[in-house]
Design a binder for these strands. Structure first.
Ligand SMILES: [Zn+2]
Ligand SMILES: [Zn+2]
Ligand SMILES: [Zn+2]
Ligand SMILES: [Zn+2]
Lengths: 154, 154
DNA sequence: TTTGCAACTGTTACAGTTTAACAATAAAGA
DNA sequence: TCTTTATTGTTAAACTGTAACAGTTGCAAA
């Protein structure tokens, strides 16, 4: 969780990936979409639709929800279903990867594990059941290192 | 997915576990709670709160939500966050196990994998990050064997 | 048995979240 | 330029979940 990232670098890289991807898909990275994207990328924390909307000059809900749908479908963000929130994804190289998230319920920072960490066995089991996977959510809620430290010092 | 279960047996077993657990916890398995429990256990399909409420004679929301909270906290059902729905849990022996669900988005049948299938690596990674897990969701959405077969025949 | 506490229920009203629908614009290509 | 498609603006409504508080029930101690 630790903010050990050079976050300007995170943002820049994400932005670049987004622009590249949109060009490739022949879709537009419009103002609203870019706006929501930047808001989400302010940090590695999960953000709810409502929080995002607030920063969108309280624009009407459809504006934000459409942008979120767009970004999600493009694989640029993850929907954190257990929090009903969103977070930026850095693994845009393979847009079909499965998000495996460590989510701190104290500070809402999120670390995304490298693709394939826990997924192999799950995929194997699915195959055993004749199940065709389409979308997978792996979300571990808990407390991150930093927040644990703060707990102890409190 | 396949309804290869003797579902009366599933229900009976779940009911027994629920009664046992409530006794052990010193809480009551009241009418509403039992009602919601039975509704959820009609099948292995995910059910939304709204669907459940319909079958509760359209009783007021708090009735149903309270019962759902109770059952969830008791470990008798799983909250399927990616669908915002609920499903019965058969692994009531260890109430703190992690639900690992194969969810068919065509028929909404759910198979729950045995505890520990995919979780080891995830837990290992969490430890590497100094993260203390508290609650984990592993949900694979897709199409089950039966629905795949129907697709081909359609 | 009575009394008192805690768990549970009933009910109202509200807050929060998401979507439908459709008209208006803007961009891209023929 | 004209046509088509993607995107936006706007309103209103549907859906989902909760706060608050009064009433009731079960249980156990006095
Ligand atoms: Zn960063
Ligand atoms: Zn990702
Ligand atoms: Zn069954
Ligand atoms: Zn379970």
């Amino acid at each position: 969780m630790s903010n050990i990232c050079d976050h300007n670098r995170c943002k820049k890289s994400a932005r670049k990936a987004a622009e590249h991807l949109c060009k490739e898909l022949g879709v537009r990275f419009t103002t609203h979409r870019r706006r929501v994207f930047e808001i989400i990328w302010q940090s590695h924390k999960a953000m709810s639709a409502a929080q995002i909307m607030q920063q969108m000059d309280n624009s009407q809900p459809p504006i934000t929800y459409r942008a979120l749908d767009f970004l999600k479908n493009a694989g640029l963000i993850h929907h954190v279903t257990s929090l009903n929130a969103y977070v930026g994804c850095l693994h845009t190289q393979n847009p079909n990867h499965i998000g495996q998230l460590l989510i701190c319920t104290s500070c809402y920072n999120i670390v995304e594990l490298e693709p394939k960490t826990a997924i192999e066995k799950l995929t194997f089991e699915a195959k055993q059941h004749g199940f065709r996977p389409n979308q997978t959510h792996i979300e571990m809620l808990g407390t991150c290192k930093d927040c644990l430290k703060n707990e102890r010092n409190a």
